[in-house]
Design a protein around this nucleic acid. Sequence first.
DNA 1: TGGGAGTGCTTTTTT
DNA 2: AGCACTCCCA
Length: 728
Amino acid sequence: MSDSLLAVLNSQQKKAVTLPVSNPPAHGLILAGAGSGKTRVLTTRAAWLLATGQSAPHAILAVTFTNKAAHEMRSRLASMTTVSLHALWIGTFHGLCHRMLRLHHQEANLPKTFQILDRADQLSAIKRLVKEMSVDDEKHPPRDLLYFIDAHKEEGIRAYAVEAWDNFSRQRKEIYEAYEAQCQREGAVDFSELLLRAHELLSSNEPLRRHYQERFRHILIDEFQDTNRLQYEWLQLLAGKETTLFAVGDDDQSIYAFRGAKIGNMRDFERRYAGERIIRLEQNYRSHGNILGAANALIRHNRERLGKNLWTEADAGEPIRVFPACSDLEEAAAIAEEIDALKQDGNPYDSVALLYRANAQSRALEHELFIRAIPYRVYGGLRFFERQEIKHALAYLRLIANPADDTAFLRVVNFPARGIGARALESLQAIARQRHTCLYDAAASLSGKAGMAVSGFIRVVNLLRQEKARLTLSELVEQMLESSGLTAHYQADRKKENQERLENLDELINAAALFTAGETDMAESTADPLLAFLSHASLEAGEYQAGINESAVQLMTVHAAKGLEFDHVFITGLEEGLFPHDNAVDDNAQEEERRLMYVAMTRARRRLYLTRAESRLLHGQRRYCLPSRFFQEIPSEFLKNAFSSSFSRASMSDAAAERNAAPSFPPEKTPELPGGLRIGMNVRHATYGFGVIVDAEIQCAEEARVQVNFGSNGMKWLALPQARLEAA
DNA sequence: TGGGAGTGCTTTTTT
DNA sequence: AGCACTCCCA
């Protein structure tokens, strides 16, 4: 059993996987370069522990950084072993801490129904607090306060322990204190609070700590370079005398220092635990030689490194293709043409990834892909559970679960509009403050016209609270959408965006049904499916994707691409100020940008494209940009100018021709079609919905036909007189 | 009270 | 440019 597990590993990987467990305590640190089989080693380590009988499933704890990684690890592990993994804990730091807090909510001094605040919730809670405290929000912008609070929590510092030396810092400390009190009163827990509360729970409760220390004999940690101080300390609390820590990481891929990740944790881990048991995985199985050589050369410009050099047995492969475009539009067009060429050569769309530094860059790329009917999917950006209409719906659900949730209350008390205005809410908040109750409870005492309006809202929530027991989760969601008036509200005005919102609300019902059918993890920590669903929505906002997986080009930020790999990768927007980003001013930040570029490059298996634009529309203004310094940091022997495809302007690798081409883009005027339509115009069709005209055939006005891309409803040829298209 | 116009700001990411 | 938030008017 264990032999077949190990057979596919190289000697270093094997050494890592089989690091002896006994002669206590034998910890290990695996420095695993990009594409060196990091996930495989981590997963095989767990499988090996199980297969050799050195560990029972319940004695293993595996920590990852993202939900995606956690899911992948569980499914890969499931395929490697016949043992039931039910008792094995795999999750993100936040997910695992949440689980502990649900299981021990009493010991953690939290109500059973505590709710998780995502960033947007947290920000609105802070805004509300700032208003209530009459804080000058010019002096203390809510956003700054959020960073201040989060940063302290992630260093493990409570409000009382914050050092204050002048008026300004005293005020911030006070606001932090008030924020803690408000969250506690409302049963609200933000992301960093999950970590801090779980940490405090373990450090203050010795029996509980001992319980977990004795339970978890093997702690496996992925992406260790991204852990912050609090996460590292939480791990240390969990590690008892008999526990072994097995950490995998790559300092060259640390890209979250800007939000508190400490690369120094790796050195500390080395000193404190790993000692001599450090294993380097330097053989890369992913990329061709040129790609790897270029990435190695780039990262050598960083000073702060533990040191490591990747090599591969693969041949050099193709050179890295560089394309300088004159504008962001041309950059997008060139990429789209190249994707078409790749597709012609038999490469599926999903073998291609478009990476960029900032989410805002996706728009131009998306537009071009849409015009050319190249299927694509954008990862990140606005996630399903973060959409406005979904947040409204979730607020109703949160009130059903926990009426003390004032953030949720305020979000929907007057949405859809019920005639409850600012004045009514002010008096309601005054009552609540005076009686130390939540808004929901205070509502009963509100008199007059405002009282009537609010009590209508309370009735809706109350009714749903009663219905909750008899309905399944998805029925409850459906019922809520009806009786809250959300569905009716979006139906009232048949705009394009409302149509989309209704579809999303429908999708929420699906998501609830799917969740009930699939989720097992949460069931253990809370018996209430509604609570579990709400936690899921906060913790895995991005995980839920509506629709099926057709083969599509993948668009995402470089951050989101970490841990993934693709045959063909385009790194776009390689300009000074964008990548590396303007915000990266000091040396540390510059090195982080370079690590980011290193991550981006090492995603590619076969072909890597580097593109840039000489001018780009940014914040509504055209900016002229210099090439990224990264071009100079990659030896030219790895690079080749221009594209391989027949892109019309690609032959112009010399700068002069390039500049000449500038005025010809965006494209030449298209002839006007009957009815005032043009190619490229957005239109609406009674059956297919919204689309864009991509082509036309005109014999005469009576026989004109247009080709319209209706997005998910497909590409259609329509006879113009019959189609009744209206400009949208 | 609610919608519409006007103003000001825009941060890389994940949980 | 696009969006969120504010202010003003019906």
